[in-house]
Write a protein that binds this DNA or RNA. Structure first.
Lengths: 248, 248
DNA sequence: TAAGGGAACTTGTACAAACAAGCCAGCACA
DNA sequence: TGTGCTGGCTTGTTTGTACAAGTTCCCTTA
């Protein structure tokens, strides 16, 4: 059962995408929408708030709402799982485990993940046949067994963990910057040592806020771009100075 | 007059920051908060929704809300304006115009900015005395005169434009990736040619959705990190493949 | 001891009503 | 002609109510 406001939001998004409400045009007023969908004003407001949060619609007190853009927002899963992102966008993708071993957590890792033992995994991912991503992931001890049980060529770790032990990745924090390719990075990605890589470090937790994994993903320059929309009201992305909270 | 729900959100955020509600702990229920602040449940829900959107609090139906983290989200201005970001975080900063000239817009620029003539500005920004950012900005023709009227060493273009012509930067779209330093980048930033830079390209518009500027900002590796929180419900950041919508 | 079934609790959705605050166009006036 | 103000329109805030849906934990039962 999908909520009423979500169905209204979907219809409005569709109207924007198909040009019923072109970019730059005014959205109908809340009163109009409420009458059209036979819903209360509050419900319509909730629907429009979804589009505002997606950056598709601009809104300010007193003035009519304006259509800003058409870009679709993608799911949480697509940001966390390379495989789910690639599949949703119609790319051919693959991946394989290069190295994997259990070890004792360092002090920083123990603090981050809340466990003494961790599982270290190095993966290489390909997009359209080209190597594009080196993934260094450290899993908390309590999921180590489940991760070790996966096939080495497992395409989507996220999905496999959900299927095997019902694990849900619910929250994430991401740090994005640029680094030079090291010797190993360069060899795996087929680039020269020192060439630029886009780095995404992230920590992922369950619904309960329990850390599951800590990962350092490095994309070959030009292969992937991160995109974000913000407004004077909503600002999810944040800039930080270089001395990092997560260390090297 | 600040809204009630915003003040409640501020108090709750403060309680999280100061450890009254430690990370991992449960937030009081909506009923409790409503009683404490003598507000309706709806108002409390709005306040908590702010924290959820900031990624500080996790929320799902049926379960008590959980404190996820402490990071404060920063203002829209701080993402758009290097000066405002640096000042808010207590850094010493500076900047100067390297080159500036009017020219005819290319077809791509005309489509993006909606004007025939544009103003091209190249700036170098410093943080703590070190050059960290090369900024190539293309302004739409209708703001060109105002930008040209600024002092060459103007610290915050955003603020200066607001003061001079009341211009408000309201919405932005950002693309983040990694590139190699070109000859000019390298000389200005004091790094070797080919060394990695973190690139942020953005287009900014007014409240009405009218494009104001298009910018290509390149940060020296290690000087700045972008940070984002997301959840399975809210996902502002998006990943894109390398063939970019904004061209080279 | 372990599995299953609820009951109580908590968050999510929806409606209705009223007032506040900001925007804008059109009108009156200089 | 242009300027300033006002009134109507539109979005923002707040309260109250009712029910839906998911979670948690305890208690029963096998």
């Amino acid at each position: 059962m999908v909520a009423r406001y979500e169905r209204i939001a979907d219809e409005l998004r569709d109207d924007i995408l198909t040009g019923v409400h072109p970019i730059g045009s005014q959205l109908p007023t809340e009163a109009e929408l409420a009458a059209r969908y036979r819903a209360a004003r509050g419900t319509v407001r909730q629907a429009v708030a979804v589009l505002v949060a997606e950056g598709l619609v601009g809104s300010r007190q007193g003035a009519r709402r304006i259509v800003l853009g058409k870009a679709r927002s993608q799911s949480f899963a697509e940001l966390h799982s390379f495989a789910q992102w690639a599949r949703a966008n119609g790319y051919r993708y693959g991946g394989q485990v290069i190295a994997q071993k259990r070890r004792v957590a360092g002090p920083a890792e123990a603090a981050r993940l809340g466990t003494d033992e961790v599982l270290d995994v190095l993966r290489l991912r390909t997009l359209e046949g080209e190597p594009v991503l080196v993934e260094r992931t450290v899993y908390a001890g309590w999921v180590a067994a489940a991760v070790e049980g996966l096939a080495p060529g497992c395409e989507s770790v996220t999905e496999a963990l959900y299927d095997s032990i019902g694990l849900v990745f619910a929250y994430g924090e991401h740090l994005i910057d640029a680094v030079s390719a090291g010797v190993l990075d360069a060899r795996l990605l087929g680039v020269r040592r020192g060439s630029p890589l886009l780095r995404q470090r992230r920590i992922t937790t369950t619904h309960e806020g329990r850390p599951v994994e800590w990962s350092d993903d490095r994309y070959r320059a030009g292969s992937v771009v991160f995109s974000i929309r913000n407004s004077i009201d909503a600002n999810p992305l944040v800039r930080q100075a270089g001395d990092l909270r997560f260390g090297a």
